[in-house]
Design a protein around this nucleic acid. Sequence first.
RNA 1: GCCCACGUAGCUCAGUCGGUAGAGCACUUGCAUGGUAAGCAAGCGGUCAGCAGUUCAAAUCUGCUCGUGGGCUCCA
Length: 639
Amino acid sequence: MSRITFTLPDGKDLELEAGWPYGEAVRTIGEGLLRNAVAVTVDGVHHPLDEAAEMGGEMLVITKASEEGLDTLRHSTAHLLAWAVQELFPDVKFAFGPNIENGFYYDFDREEPFSESDLERIEAKMTELARTKVGLTREIATPERAKEIFADQPYKLEEIEALGDVELSVYRMGSFTDLCRGPHVPGSGEIKAFKLLSVAGAYWKGDSDRPMLQRIYGTSFWKKKDLTAHLEMLEEAKKRDHRKLGRELDLFGIMEEAGPGLSYWFPRGDMVREQIIEYWKRVHRANGYRTVTTPHISQAALWETSGHMEFYKENMYVFEQDDRPYVVKPMNCPGHILMYKRKTRGYRSLPVRYAELGTVYRAELKGTLHGLMRVRGFTQDDAHHFCTPEQLGDEVDLCIELVKEIMGAFGFDDFKVELSVRDPENKGKYAGTDEEWAMAEASLVAAIEKHSLPYTREEGEAVFYGPKIDVKLVDAIGRTWQTSTIQFDFNLPRRFGVTYTDADGQEKYVYMVHRAIMGSLERFIGILTEHFAGDFPLWLAPEQARVLSVSRDQHEYAEKVAADLRAMGLRVEADTRDEKIGFKIREAEVMHVPRMLVVGGREAESGEVALRVRHEGDQGARTVEAVAEDLLDAVRNRA
RNA sequence: GCCCACGUAGCUCAGUCGGUAGAGCACUUGCAUGGUAAGCAAGCGGUCAGCAGUUCAAAUCUGCUCGUGGGCUCCA
């Protein structure tokens, strides 16, 4: 018997008798590790633990505790789902079933749509099949052999064809066989805590010209406890849904009569919006930006120059005036460029930074609209930096600084950064020179690293006109939202001839940076609503305090207290209806008013208020001055 | 745009087998002036999203349209 050698990540070598299962190699490292092992990878190829090892190589053990381990479980659960579907609906054709961020899905081709009750049946069948505790075994197949196995599975055959003449791997779990790279858990017995969540349509390979399949989504965990926690998070997200809170708290909404994707801001919501705008403008002016305003419509000629009429037309609202085509602006950049170009610019006057809360309209596909998160009319917190190559680093640095400062003001301090660069294989489809791309990328990396933000590099994810950084934030219940973006543009300066005169007297193209921090104001307020669950901090709350009179005799005093507080710049209303105090408190609580100032006979007498804090309850009597000071303090500290 | 589901009063929802609609809250009015999350009573309010069809009869069945939701796709 020959022996084979595995190299472990720590550099140590491990020997194994050829033909023994990989699990034995893992056992040599440790019994405990074997118990927690899911599968192994040798030279990047996945193998089940009970598979006979034939060749040595670099070995990695996938454990349950790792992210990859959980991904593996979810992928295996997708197979279990497919197996259950195969048992219940033998005529179904199978497409793909990968793990995804919080779970997994599997795409099926079936005439009849799956119903909610089908999901219950499938889930019950999955539980039954998982309990058979069969192993998940791997088999190597040539394309010819794979075509035999999947003779009646057109999607698998298409995939085998696409993969070409390579060694394929096939996984079997009970009577279900799938073309799959793996890895998988050792057996169905590992799959215990899972739940099917929804059915939706999905195109084969995401291509709208290909057949529409039925996608079943689900999630899976090692422990019941973790599944329960995840399902509770989903429940919590439902409770925080900004569409629901927007209606309940009388903040914003979409009017059916007016059309889809168009948001309306009611008095309370508009107040929140105004606080954000005021803060945003203050911060920008303090950081060397000049705020500007550009019109909502302009002649289409402007968008011919920018290239939008050619490449973005289906997303634009185009109409006619004076026999000329006009466009409702989908972006603010051309407007800012015109402003930059209104005078000649020398290198001494750069950088120029124009910022605008510019409302833009885009004809998004109807099916993609979603509350405030995806609308057709929205306000970008847009800015454009025009600078020299030497200034690039500082400009990007400023952008990141502002992202941290502004997001920090709203309580977000956990970010995920993605750097999107060119597809190195396909440089031809991008604007700009190699030199420009290299310099832009270097300045982005330098800025990210200076702020020691962890980031991922996404090859080929850059837009054609330049590399970019996208920042995602993590909210109160752990969800991530993409908000900020910092993008270079090597395209528009050339199209519009945006230049400056350098020290050497030469006219050169400016470097142009687009950036948005909140992204869309509407969407950002939607995110904030969900993040705070409707409990906006005092500086944002539409109504910071409500004075509640206990009985008729204090109505006048209540109005006076409210008026005094308003005079100090606070947002305060008085509830002087002839209702019981319990009723008024309930209404104020339901509307998420952070402070309630109860005034009865005693308080009217002493010139005080009884302070009630939302979520904390009755705090006892306070002077009006003390309450005012406390409120003003909270607003100043943006608490 | 595509697949699936849904659309009943301002809101949340009930409505059986097809027999032209109900509740709670909200609103209006009256009584009650009550001390920390819903006082009592009466009243008003619906072309059952819209249009067409089947039927003696449609909220209910069918088709189309609009809107909403879960996704796909798009985000030059």
